[in-house]
Simulated scan of single mutants.
Amino acid sequence: MQHSHWDIFCAVVDNYGDIGVTWRLARQLASEHGIEVNLWVDDLRSFGHILPALDPKLPCQMVEGIRVLQWNTPLDQPYVAGEVLIEAFACELPDEVKQAVRDAAMPPCWLNLEYLSAEDWVEGCHGLPSFQPGGINKYFYMPGFSAATGGLICETGLFETRAAWQADSANKMALFQKLGLGGIQAEDKVISVFSYETEALPALCELWSEGQQRVHALIPKGRSFNSLKALLPCPVEALTPGQRIELGMLTLHVLPMTDQQGYDRLLWSCDFNIVRGEDSFLRAQWAARPFIWHIYQQEEDYHLVKLEAFMQLYCDNLASEIAECWRNLNLSFNQQQATAVQQHWQYMDSHAVPLLAHARQWPIDALKTTDLATRLVQFVKNSLR
């Protein structure tokens, strides 16, 4: 008899991106679809930064209805094949797992959950089988923005919850206070920054510091601050959560670490978000606020191909002048063009109202009524027939 549970394996890369997406998927599969999920993670310490309820010392524990297991090599916990096996983002499964799949009387539906992309080729690759030893197919599951892809992670009721939060400014002010971010007034411009290192960031900080409006940049300790060392009163390692650094009209705030729900609310509460990776990239879109996507740099600038594909999609219903402005801002930030990013930011500020209206409509258009978890469950049902 086949076990009904699903197993998801995730190798933590770049601290929070891969595990952030995987955890959201596991939670939604359990809470909205009633699926018993085993989540195998190789770095529980990093995982614990976005999931405070997790105890990194426990090799097996239940958190929010998910069984979280330490993925060591070899495995400390026995793997028993269930209904579905997901390797998140092409992580290499342990040999004993592959052998258990081959030996199973009813092999699980084996899926490779890929990274999100807006590129055209995604539609053609979504759902394709890859023949594995033992006569088993592994399917490529491709998240994406069209109906012919695997869809986008989005919890039921998320947009309604976000809209209610943003309708009352008291919510954001209470959040800033809870996070220990002092000195922010309701009329100030607030920008969250979660980027890789780039010379474009200190250029924007210089522009903000010399502007007419009070700006607050909310930045967690890490790679963004590595770009701002020349502006800091101490080494990056010595920064403390809640610390404020005054630079003219700009205040840099050191953000404390927060869980995923807290980060979502932070994005909802800011006027503009600078994000990186995949999880924060999609959550910035769901926040219905304008944003810059600092995409992970790849060889031969292939990351810019991915960026262009998304920008073309995002700008489809934007007026050409505004679309060009937003595209140029994202490109200059990703190409570390300090002077250009300042110019494009100033130009974008003059289009703030229509850009915000577009950001509010985009989540509705992008989701196309069906989220990734729902499409995934249906894909499994079709594959197991």
Rank of each mutant, 00 (worst) to 15 (best):
Y296Q: 03
L181G: 06
Q132K: 13
L113E: 09
E187S: 13
E36V: 08
G180K: 05
I364M: 03
R385K: 13
S169K: 11
Y115M: 05
A338F: 06
F225G: 07
G222E: 02
T374V: 06
E87V: 01
R375F: 01
Y314W: 14
R385I: 04
L367R: 12
D349I: 07
Q361W: 09
V41W: 04
D259C: 02
D18K: 11
V13W: 00
L255Q: 08
I191A: 07
G180P: 11
D95A: 15
Q2D: 11
Q185F: 02
T251I: 08
G20E: 05
L384I: 15
S146M: 02
G151N: 11
L267Q: 14
Q343K: 14
Y141V: 07
A104L: 03
E92G: 06
A81L: 12
L111D: 09
H294F: 09
F131P: 10
F9W: 04
P143Y: 02
A230T: 13
R24H: 09
T369F: 00
D43H: 14
A338I: 04
T370W: 04
Q336M: 11
T149I: 09
A186W: 01
S46K: 06
E206H: 08
A238Y: 06
Q285H: 04
S269F: 10
A147Y: 01
Y302I: 14
L29P: 01
L152T: 00
A163K: 14
Q260G: 01
K178N: 12
T22P: 05
F9P: 04
H351M: 09
Q212D: 14
T369R: 02
R276A: 11
D76P: 04
V101A: 05
R45T: 12
N38H: 15
D264K: 12
L39R: 05
Y141I: 07
L25Y: 02
V215D: 00
P143T: 10
E87A: 13
H351K: 04
F225W: 06
A288G: 15
A148F: 02
I274E: 01
D259N: 15
R244Y: 00
L329P: 11
A366Q: 14
E87N: 14
A11L: 12
A174M: 05
D168C: 08
E237N: 11
A105I: 09
W362T: 13
L255A: 08
E32F: 07
T258Q: 11
D271K: 10
D14F: 00
Q346H: 06
A287V: 04
L266S: 10
A309W: 08
P74N: 08
S383F: 00
A352H: 14
T149K: 00
I274C: 10
T258Y: 01
W362K: 07
H3K: 15
I35K: 15
R24N: 01
A288F: 07
K138D: 10
K189D: 12
I153F: 06
S224N: 07
S4C: 05
C60Y: 01
V380N: 03
V101H: 11
I364T: 05
L367Q: 12
Q61E: 12
M257S: 13
L58Q: 15
E32V: 14
V12W: 00
I322R: 06
N171G: 02
P256I: 10
L228R: 02
A338Q: 01
D18H: 13
I35W: 03
I153H: 08
A309Y: 04
R265T: 03
L329Y: 08
H3S: 15
K57Y: 05
E123Y: 00
I245N: 02
S195Q: 10
